[in-house]
Design a protein around this nucleic acid. Structure first.
Lengths: 244, 244
DNA sequence: CGTAATCTTGAGTCCAATCAACCAATGTGG
DNA sequence: CCACATTGGTTGATTGGACTCAAGATTACG
C-alpha cells in the first residue's frame, strides 16, 4: 500500500534503496479514517506531515455564506504539508472524501530525511512544483472554461494522476466522490454539474456510477476539454535535468 | 531598490548581515523591461531566477479560444521560480504589466545560497508556502464569490502585499494595470469589472485612476469582501515557530 | 427494510457575457 | 498646432447560461 508514495516520488528523482527504505519506514504505521472527516482544520497550527495511502481526500476552504470551495484533491501517494512545521497556520482544511488509509510521518523522520536524503528532497521539491502547476491549471479552469470543459478537464487530470500511481485499470478507476464534491471543486451547482456529466455521458466520453469513473475516449475528452497533460509534470524526469 | 526582496524575506526569517549581503549582490545588476512583454514563456525550458525590483508583473496562461487567465500577480520583492532549474517546462508565461525593473540571479549564486544560507532557504520555503496560500484563496475567490467581492478581495490582497514591502503611502499605492487585467485575474469581462469597480467607488471604498489605487476604508472593504489577511502569512514570523 | 443521501429532470429567474456605441485621454505625424 | 488613431473606460440593450426551487427516482446504508 505504502508504495504509492515511492512510486510517485520516483517520477521525479532516482531513489536509492536507502531512500526507499526510509520512506517505507516513515509510512509504516497507518490508520484508517472514515469518509467525510476533517483531518486538520483551517486555522489550526500546522504540525503533522500526512501521506495518503488509499482513498480520496481534499483541501477545502469555507467562504462567506458557508459555501465550501475545494481547492485540491488528494490522491494516494500524495504527501501533505511536508513543510508544515515551519509555517504557523493552516489556510485550509484537509479532509477525507471517501474512507481513507493515512500515515502520519513522525517529525523526527521528516527532519532526518530533509537532512540526509537529498534525492528525496529534490523529488519533493519537484512534486510541490507540480502541485503549483495543478493549481494554476485549476485557476485557468475556473476563470476561462465553461461547465462541460471544467468537468472534463478535472476528470482528465484525475485520470492522469491516478495513472501515475498505477491505479487505473482498463480506463477505469475508483472515484468515490459525489457530484456535489465535483461542484464545489469547479465552482458550480451540483445540478449544473449533473447536466454536464450527462452531456459527457451522452457523447460516450465517460461513464460514472457507483464511485467508478471510466474514460471511454481519453484523446477526445482531452481535446474538447482543452487538456494538455504536460502541466502535471508526470512524465519521468529522471536524468532529464541537470542537478543544481 | 533591491531591498524589497530583503524586506520581504525578513518577514519570514531573521537574516544575518551575510545573508543580506549575498542577496544584495545577487540582485545588484538589474535591467529595465518595458510594459507588456513576456519575460519567459509557457513551454520554455525553465532557466533563470528572476527578482522583480519595481513595477508589476503577472503569470498567465492561455486557454482555448485565446482567453488569457492571470493566475498570479508579481509585486516588487517577489522572487520568481527559485527552483526553476530543476523542472523542465514552464506551465505559464511570466510577463510584465507595467514597465519593470528586474534582476536575473546568476545560477552560481542561487546554488551557493541554497547550500550555504539556510535562513534564506527557510525564508524562501515560507515565502513559497505563502504563495500557495494565495493561490488557494484565488481559487476560493473564483469559485465562491460574486463580482464585487472578487474585485474587493483582490484589491485587499494587493494592498497588504504592497504594504509588506513598504509601498503604500496614506492608503494609496501605484497599481498601473488595466481593468482588463483585473478581469483576466478574476474570471470576468472587463465590462463587468468596470461596473463592480464603480460600485466600490460609489460606496466610498476605493479610488482607482491613473494607475493609482486608493483604499478609503480598508476594514469595511475587507468585511464586505470576506477578506481575512491571515492567509498572506505576512505578519512577522521570526521566532514564532520552532526550527526543523 | 426503511430512511436518508444522492441523482435526475423540469420550469422559472436572474445574472453576467456579448454586442455595440460613445467618451476621454494620450500619442503621432503632417 | 491640429487631425487622426489608439487605448482604456463607461454605458445601454440583448441574450444565453447558470442558479434556484421543487419534485420524483434511484441508490446507499444502518
Amino acid at each position: 500500500m505504502s508504495d504509492a508514495l515511492i512510486r510517485r516520488l520516483e517520477i521525479f528523482a532516482e531513489l536509492s534503496s536507502a531512500d526507499k527504505a526510509i520512506l517505507a519506514e516513515a509510512t509504516a504505521t497507518s490508520r484508517p479514517i472514515s469518509a467525510r472527516t476533517d483531518v486538520s482544520r483551517e486555522g489550526d497550527a500546522r504540525r503533522d506531515v500526512f501521506v495518503l495511502l488509499s482513498g480520496i481526500g481534499c483541501r477545502y476552504k469555507i467562504v462567506a455564506e458557508g459555501r465550501r470551495c475545494i481547492v485540491a484533491f488528494v490522491l494516494p501517494g500524495d504527501l501533505c504539508d511536508i513543510h508544515a512545521p515551519i509555517l504557523n497556520r493552516m489556510d485550509h482544511t484537509l479532509a477525507t472524501l471517501s474512507p481513507c488509509e493515512m500515515s502520519v510521518m513522525p517529525r523526527s523522520i521528516v527532519s532526518h530525511i530533509l537532512e540526509h536524503h537529498p534525492m528525496i528532497v529534490r523529488a519533493l521539491a519537484c512534486s510541490s512544483m507540480a502541485t503549483e502547476s495543478i493549481q494554476h491549471e485549476w485557476l485557468a479552469n475556473l476563470g476561462g472554461r465553461n461547465s462541460p470543459m471544467r468537468i472534463g478537464h478535472l476528470l482528465c487530470e484525475l485520470y492522469h494522476r491516478m495513472e501515475a500511481v498505477d491505479l487505473v485499470e482498463r480506463g477505469q478507476f475508483s472515484l468515490p466522490i459525489t457530484q456535489i464534491d465535483l461542484a464545489d471543486a469547479t465552482g458550480q451547482t451540483s445540478v449544473h454539474v449533473n447536466r454536464s456529466i450527462q452531456r459527457l455521458r451522452s457523447e460516450r466520453l465517460i461513464t460514472f456510477a457507483q464511485g467508478m469513473l471510466g474514460i471511454l475516449d481519453l484523446r477526445r475528452l482531452e481535446r474538447i476539454s482543452d487538456f494538455q497533460p504536460d502541466y502535471l509534470q508526470l512524465s519521468r524526469q529522471v536524468g532529464t535535468t541537470s542537478p543544481d
